[in-house]
Amino acid sequence: MSLSIDAASARIVRELKSSEETISNALVAASALLHSAALADHDISDVPEVKVQSVLLHLNKMIHGLIEARGEARRVHGQLLDIGQAMGATETPYCPPKTAVIAEQRAA
């Protein structure tokens, strides 16, 4: 079964947007978890410090991985947009605001 350019474009735009939103939501959730774990460590004195430190380090790695995944998704987005334009895809591309992309590039 083959897709037309229009059908492929529509599917890719929809799935790309969904993927980017999922990564963003995961980053928010993981950050909230890190915040809660840090508050619990601060407020509850009976928690073993070594175990809490290990948890915080693993949460940090998880968040770092999500930030990396977000950057990769943005790169994929740009590459797919280039391919779509070269192929003459008629689907209106979904792109995050340029200010958000510029701010992320500066932060990197």
Rank of each mutant, 00 (worst) to 15 (best):
T99Y: 07
G78D: 06
M87C: 14
S45H: 11
A108P: 03
P96A: 09
K61E: 15
A32K: 08
G84Y: 06
T22F: 09
E104L: 05
L81S: 06
V13I: 05
A7K: 08
L3H: 06
P93H: 02
A103S: 07
A103C: 00
L39A: 13
I5Y: 05
E20Y: 01
K51M: 13
N60W: 02
I63L: 12
T99I: 13
L33K: 10
A89H: 00
A29R: 09
L39G: 02
L56W: 07
R75T: 08
A38W: 03
A40V: 07
R74T: 06
A40C: 08
R75F: 05
A73T: 04
S2M: 07
A30F: 03
D46E: 13
M62C: 10
K98M: 15
S45A: 14
H35Y: 15
D82W: 02
V76S: 08
S36G: 05
L56T: 05
Q85P: 02
V55G: 02
R11D: 10
Q105W: 11
E68F: 04
M1C: 07
K98T: 13
R106I: 11
E21K: 03
E91W: 00
E91T: 03
L34I: 00
L66G: 00
R14Q: 09
E91K: 03
G84E: 07
S2Y: 05
V47A: 09
T90C: 03
D43S: 15
V47E: 10
D46W: 11
H42S: 14
A29E: 12
A30T: 07
H35P: 00
S45L: 11
S31F: 06
V13G: 00
V76F: 14
P96E: 05
L81M: 09
A69L: 13
A89V: 04
